[in-house]
Simulated assay, not measured.
Amino acid sequence: MFTGIIEQIGSVQKYLALDDSQTGGNGASLTIENAGPILKDCHLGDSIAINGTCLTVTEFNNDSFKVGISDETLRRTTLGSSKVGDKVNLERAISGNVRFGGHLVQGHVDTIAEIINRHPDGNSISFTFRLRDSEFINYIVPKGFIAVDGTSLTVTGVNYQEATFSIMMVAYTQSKVVLPLKKIGDYVNIEVDLTGKLISRQVELQLGSQISNENSQLYQLISRIIDKKLSRSTRND
Rank of each mutant, 00 (worst) to 15 (best):
R201M: 09
D63T: 13
I116R: 06
Q217V: 12
V84E: 14
Q202L: 15
S81Y: 08
C54M: 00
G4Y: 06
D149V: 09
G208V: 05
L16E: 15
D19F: 04
H108T: 06
S64G: 01
C54H: 00
I190M: 04
L74T: 01
D20V: 13
T195N: 13
A93N: 04
I184Q: 14
L194G: 01
D121A: 15
Q161I: 09
S82W: 02
S233T: 12
G150F: 13
N236M: 14
S152C: 09
L30H: 03
T53R: 01
V12H: 07
L218Y: 11
D110C: 07
G96M: 14
G107F: 03
P180F: 03
I184D: 11
V141T: 11
S209D: 08
H43F: 02
S200A: 15
G10A: 13
I9N: 06
S126G: 00
G157N: 14
T23G: 01
S212N: 11
A163S: 15
G122E: 02
I6L: 13
G45N: 09
G27P: 00
K87G: 02
R75T: 10
V155P: 06
D63L: 01
N62H: 14
E114T: 10
Y139A: 15
S82R: 03
V178Q: 04
E214G: 08
K197D: 08
I211G: 07
F145E: 00
L198R: 12
K229I: 12
L221N: 13
G150T: 13
D237K: 14
D149Q: 14
V105W: 07
G24L: 08
P180N: 06
G25Q: 05
T77Y: 01
K66M: 01
R130Y: 05
G102T: 05
D71T: 10
A113V: 03
R232Q: 14
E135Y: 06
F129A: 03
Y139G: 07
S175C: 00
Q22R: 10
I6E: 10
I167R: 06
I94F: 08
E214H: 11
L104I: 15
I222G: 11
T31G: 01
S29H: 06
I222T: 09
N117D: 13
V105C: 11
L207P: 07
G122I: 05
D46N: 14
V109T: 03
V170S: 03
N51G: 04
S29D: 06
F2M: 02
G10H: 12
F136E: 03
R118G: 00
G25P: 02
N97A: 12
N34M: 07
T154K: 07
G80M: 08
N97Y: 13
K40F: 05
M168Y: 03
S126W: 02
N89F: 14
T111K: 10
Q13P: 00
P120V: 07
G4M: 08
A49F: 09
V141S: 11
I140W: 10
L90I: 10
V170Y: 07
G122S: 02
L39Q: 02
S209A: 12
S233W: 12
N62Y: 12
G122M: 01
K229Y: 12
F136S: 01
L153Y: 02
T73A: 11
S29C: 06
F129D: 04
N89M: 14
P142F: 06
I32M: 09
I222K: 13
T164M: 02
K87Y: 04
N236P: 00
N89W: 14
I9A: 04
T156C: 10
V188P: 09
L205R: 11
C42R: 07
R224F: 00
